[in-house]
Design a binder for these strands. Structure first.
Length: 665
DNA sequence: TACAAGCCGCAT
DNA sequence: ATGCGGCTTGTA
């Protein structure tokens, strides 16, 4: 063969990486699979016909130049690449979807359903802005799953890397450096990358879950701690009582659980199973605000909570699920509070409509049960009890027991805590909907079409906001503005600081324990600053002279151990490569957190006032931050599929190399 | 303005 | 036992 066995494509500037010449356009061939340009003159076996030119596959993709371990592939290489081409040419797929399918193909992993696929995409795009895409595996273009790092400092999914090795490749897919046999046979997962990626996912999903909405919505701050009677009150006790102070810092239209951050009095939040004497006390802890009405909500916005109090005989309580009846249909003219006679049909309006909105959106609805519900086995002995989060899966109308139409709602529990009546040590799992015989006779049946805002996250194994909770529409008490502004600023800063600190901490050098400067990753997957790493071996050489009894023996390779484990890394030391991808992430992380910090300060000075006045406070910082930071869908296009990656990589490497050189000097 | 799945003493 | 009247809060 006229050519040596090493085959190289053109780099990002169009120069052949083998002969260093920049060929004319007509002297290059573009691979039909990966779209990488190659210098025809440097190809070991250029195509001979026009047809084969159009369908030409580069040596990397055709898999033929090197004897490949064919057994490592499930099918043949050509089958695999045919499948890749089919994905590439499928115009119904976005680039992201193509990338995911490629990864499935290469790794053998398959995500079963569309929901997962969607979830993966959401996740990916939401934290890509943290990790910047620069860590992405260049095979599948996703964040590396079980990342491995080559001695030349490039990161891949373990499975993608193993497929590559399985095809007989022994050079880095990014830079063509030789991959040592040890790395090829026993790639080690880079646990630093694992935890960084996990943390980035977590920090983002936490933001989406909205735990950062600590603020002080202190309503009626001047009220006493207990319900009280005014001078006008004619009756003692709570008959004519006014409400005591609201203890929790959620707005009245807050959806979902009330967490510790919104419970400054006890710092525990409203826990499932918590009991109160009566509806007024329940109100003070925010579980269900109206002290008379059974439904809390707004017809154009949604319902936040309901009370099961036995007021409507059509109700049917099965604990984990129940059938709820809407309000209205009764003549309560005058001051009748006890008329249980229905005299007209209920409609989906007012509170009944609010419940339907919550059904439509899949909002979490808090449920309290009252001792007054006598027919239910699940009602508390006395008082009012918080039973957790439910979702309204369906609603409809039917003719009720009294012969008039009632609105009906199927509530199904979806709380992360076990219900007060179970001995389970965990909360709900998604469960199939119960069979509802009355649905056969139902009219106006309404089912949720869109994906629910509150849903079970398979990955986190818990229920959480999958979409940002709706922002509060409630006006803010001006007197509270100053305090709330301060609180928000502090929280914002705490958040950015902790995320930055936690993320950066993960990137610490195992020697100096500081954030790595010029990170290097050993083949045994330990990470150090380049300078720390080199200093650890100063004065030691990879080659040593052996002498015995005055006789000089043949020089022998010195065994040099990794500072963190017994692995011999003398070969790695010979040609120390900075993990530029890691370095890029660290840099952008530093930069981003500084920007954030600045933004926090600016915002707290000015924009907070504005946003406060807009009263967009219910969902707090998380949504606002998400909205502004939410990556434009077009961002997908900025993460090119592998075909353009070759170019991008080469270009970036060039820049980075000069930086590294400059830094070294 | 009317209504809403509360609360309580008292009249019936 | 049952229901009336009077006050409460938030929604429409």
């Amino acid at each position: 063969m006229a050519h040596d066995s090493v085959q190289l494509p053109c780099d990002g500037d169009g120069a052949c990486m083998r002969c260093k010449v920049t060929p004319l356009a007509e002297e290059t061939l573009t691979c039909s699979t990966c779209a990488t340009p190659w210098h025809v003159a440097c190809l070991a076996s250029p195509p001979e016909t026009l047809a084969s030119t159009l369908q030409w596959q580069c040596p990397d993709c055709s898999g033929d130049p090197l004897p490949s371990a064919a057994g490592a592939l499930d099918g043949t290489s050509s089958e695999l690449f045919a499948a890749i081409r089919a994905i590439e040419s499928d115009e119904s797929l976005t680039e992201k979807e193509k990338a995911r399918k490629r990864q499935e193909l290469v790794s053998g992993r398959v995500e079963e359903d569309g929901d997962k696929e969607k979830k993966g995409k959401e996740k990916e795009s939401s934290f890509l802005d943290v990790l910047d895409g620069s860590l992405n595996c260049s095979f599948c273009m996703l964040l590396p799953d079980r990342p491995v790092t080559t001695p030349c400092g490039h990161n891949f999914c373990l499975k993608c890397f193993q497929k590559w090795i399985g095809q007989g490749k022994r050079t880095c897919a990014k830079c063509r450096s030789i991959i040592p046999p040890k790395m090829a046979s026993q790639p080690r997962i880079n646990s630093t990358l694992v935890s960084v990626i996990r943390m980035a996912k977590l920090s983002k999903s936490n933001v989406a879950a909205g735990p950062m909405k600590v603020y002080h919505f202190v309503q009626n701050q001047d009220r006493p701690d207990k319900a009280f009677t005014t001078e006008r009150a004619q009756k003692p006790g709570k008959a004519n009582a006014a409400s005591g102070k609201i203890f929790v810092t959620v707005p009245p239209d807050h959806f979902g659980p009330i967490t510790a951050e919104n419970d400054p009095a006890r710092n525990q939040g409203v826990l499932v199973g918590e009991c109160w004497e009566d509806r007024l006390e329940c109100r003070q802890w925010g579980a269900h605000l109206p002290h008379v009405a059974g439904i809390a909500g707004q017809s154009n916005y949604g319902a936040q909570s309901v009370a099961l109090s036995g007021g409507y005989e059509d109700d049917e309580d099965h604990g984990e699920w129940f059938l709820y009846t809407g309000s209205g249909g009764r003549d309560l003219s005058g001051n009748k509070r006890t008329n249980k006679e229905q005299s007209f049909d209920q409609k989906f309006e007012k509170m009944n409509e609010a419940l339907r909105v919550s059904c439509k959106m899949g909002y979490p609805v808090r449920v309290v049960r009252s001792h007054k519900e006598k027919r239910s086995s699940y009602a508390p002995e006395k008082g009012v009890r918080y039973d957790g989060i439910y979702r309204i899966e369906k609603c409809w109308r039917k003719v009720g027991i009294q012969g008039f139409k009632v609105c009906r709602y199927l509530f199904v529990r979806c709380d992360n805590e076990p219900a007060p009546w179970t001995s389970d040590d965990r909360g709900d799992l998604p469960r199939p909907l119960p069979a509802i015989p009355e649905l056969k006779k139902a009219t106006d049946v309404f089912e949720r079409k869109e994906s629910p805002s509150w849903d079970f996250d398979e990955e986190d194994n818990r229920w959480r906001w999958k979409k940002p909770p709706p922002p509060s529409k409630k006006p803010v008490n001006a007197a509270d503005l100053e305090e709330r502004k301060r609180a928000r600023k502090a929280i914002r800063q705490a958040h950015t600081t902790t995320v930055r600190e936690r993320l950066l901490k993960e990137f610490s050098c195992l020697i100096c324990r500081q954030v790595m400067n010029l990170p290097v990753t050993t083949p045994c997957a330990h990470n150090f600053c380049k300078s720390c790493f080199e200093a650890a071996f100063s004065g030691k050489t990879a080659i040593r002279e052996r002498s015995k009894g005055g006789r000089t023996l043949r020089s022998q390779k010195n065994v040099l151990h990794c500072p963190s484990c017994p692995t011999d890394i003398s070969d790695f030391l010979q040609n120390l490569q900075v993990n530029r991808e890691l370095m890029g992430v660290i840099e952008s992380l530093k930069q981003k957190s500084e920007e954030n910090q600045d933004a926090v300060e600016e915002l707290s000075e000015e924009q907070v006032d504005e946003s406060e006045e807009n009263a967009d406070i219910g969902s707090g910082d998380s949504e606002t931050a998400q909205k502004t930071k939410n990556p434009d869908p077009k961002d997908d296009l900025q993460n090119p599929p592998p075909d353009s990656d070759q170019k991008r990589t080469s270009k970036r490497m060039k820049v980075d190399t000069t930086q590294v050189v400059a830094d070294c000097e």
